[in-house]
Amino acid sequence: MKTLGYYNGKYGELEDMAIPFNDRVHFFGDGVYDAGPSRNYVIFAIDEHIDRFFNSAKLLEIQMPVTKAELKQILQEMVNKMDTGNLFVYYQVTRGTGIRNHVYTEGPGNLWIMLKPAEISDGIEPIKLITLEDTRFLHCNIKTLNLIPSCVANQRAKEAGVQESVFYREGGRITECAHSNVHIIKNGELYTAPTDNLILPGIARRHLIDKCKELGIKVNEVPYYLDDLFTAEEVLVTSSSNLCLHANEIDGMAVGGKQSELLEKIRKAVLGEFVEATQLIQKKAV
């Protein structure tokens, strides 16, 4: 199949899938999600993503309709049905189905899954960024479906002819991007925002940190600010869709380019782990 969707046990091409009118997602965006890449029919860092998915649901008191093991099996079976093993694997759970009411709907949530072909960038070509004030709510550590601020930020990035927007809070503290984590290299060390309630604890962020430590690069999980961003030796952007990108322009001003050898070591380490973990295996029969 070229694309594949799932809703509470029903499968089909995405264009053929239909969702009940009273699913709470339609009225409240009441749910959480997670996602990551597959390569060669191997879903990268699947256990880490599923753990975060279940944690997001727990923080919003959403009852999961499956266990972690069951979800992992469903995802792999769906990946195996696809024409290509290089995919974007997306899944979400909404609180349930019922007549519109702000009070929680009781019972298990609704499980959605979406698969579509996708490739991971090799991170060689630099990207451009803009900065925007972070006007989101104070639960950014939960991967909720309430993404209007991120959608607006992505539209502003598109209008500016850049690839991503960097959010900052009052006082200039950098939090994250619209759908990525952002980090800097300063004095040869990695600086990344702490995993408090203002940022999502990115899986790619964690792998970046681990690889930097393996390379002997000191990691500082502390707040940093707009001035630090614009004067950084390098600016890195990570997400599960693009594991290790770097920026050479922010708000029309040149940035980075001062630690190219170190940047390349980091890029190779991060992408190398992904390639090694998703080596070609025989596709299982479906």
Rank of each mutant, 00 (worst) to 15 (best):
L245N: 14
F274M: 10
S240Q: 07
V235W: 01
L236V: 14
T231V: 01
I217T: 05
G252W: 01
E264C: 10
L271Y: 11
A247G: 08
E234I: 04
R267D: 11
I266S: 08
L215S: 07
R267M: 12
I266L: 11
T278L: 12
A254K: 15
E249S: 11
S260I: 13
Y224M: 01
T231E: 09
L229R: 02
F274N: 06
V275L: 14
K213N: 13
G216K: 12
E273I: 11
L263D: 08
E264P: 08
L245P: 10
L271I: 15
N248Y: 02
L263I: 09
K211C: 14
V237F: 08
D228H: 02
I266H: 06
G272S: 10
G257V: 00
K265S: 13
G216L: 08
S239Y: 05
L215Q: 08
E221I: 01
F274S: 10
L226V: 06
N242H: 15
K213E: 15
K211I: 13
E276L: 12
S240T: 15
T238V: 05
S260Y: 08
Y225M: 03
G272E: 11
K265W: 07
E264M: 13
R267P: 12
G272W: 07
C212Q: 04
A277M: 12
G252I: 03
I266N: 08
Y224L: 01
H246I: 07
L226F: 03
E264K: 14
K268Y: 10
H246Y: 15
E221N: 02
I250T: 04
V237L: 11
L263V: 09
A232P: 04
Q259Y: 08
G216I: 07
E264W: 11
T231K: 11
K213F: 03
A247P: 13
A247E: 10
G272P: 12
V222L: 05
E261A: 13
G256Q: 04
L236C: 05
T278H: 10
E264F: 11
L226M: 13
G256I: 02
A277E: 14
C212P: 04
V237M: 10
D227Q: 12
G256E: 05
D227N: 13
S239A: 12
E234H: 06
V255H: 01
K213D: 09
S241N: 13
K265E: 09
